[in-house]
């Protein structure tokens, strides 16, 4: 997964990140769970990287099921 073509989902807690992982896995959307890049947040938890082209289906899958703090580019 090339960081340039990816976005990350930021959450308030790792529980939300792991629930998201479960939901994305269930929908077959490629993703990777990574430590939160320090320039994005001072949080010590995990976030989820996915292809920018999948943004719509990611949002559809998570709608109403997970609280997303932010969606942003990695760079």
């Amino acid at each position: 997964m090339d960081a340039k073509t990816c976005l990350v989902l930021l959450f308030d807690s790792t529980s939300e990140a792991l629930l998201t992982e479960k939901l994305l896995k269930g929908s077959g959307i490629p993703h990777k769970i990574i430590p939160v890049p320090r320039h994005l947040s001072s949080d010590c938890g995990a976030c989820i990287q996915f292809l920018a082209s999948d943004k719509e289906s990611v949002c559809e899958t998570l709608d109403g099921r997970v609280d997303i703090r932010d969606i942003c580019p990695i760079g």
Binding site: S13, T14, S15, L18, L19, E21, K22, I33, I34, P35, V36, C44, G45, A46
Partner: peptide, 21 residues
């Protein structure tokens, strides 16, 4: 420890807790 780091063992611990939830 779950929820405290991004390494695979911590994530696996988090998955154990999430599955239980």
């Amino acid at each position: 420890s779950p929820g405290r780091s991004g390494h695979r063992m911590s994530l696996d611990a988090g998955r154990v807790v999430l599955d239980a939830r």
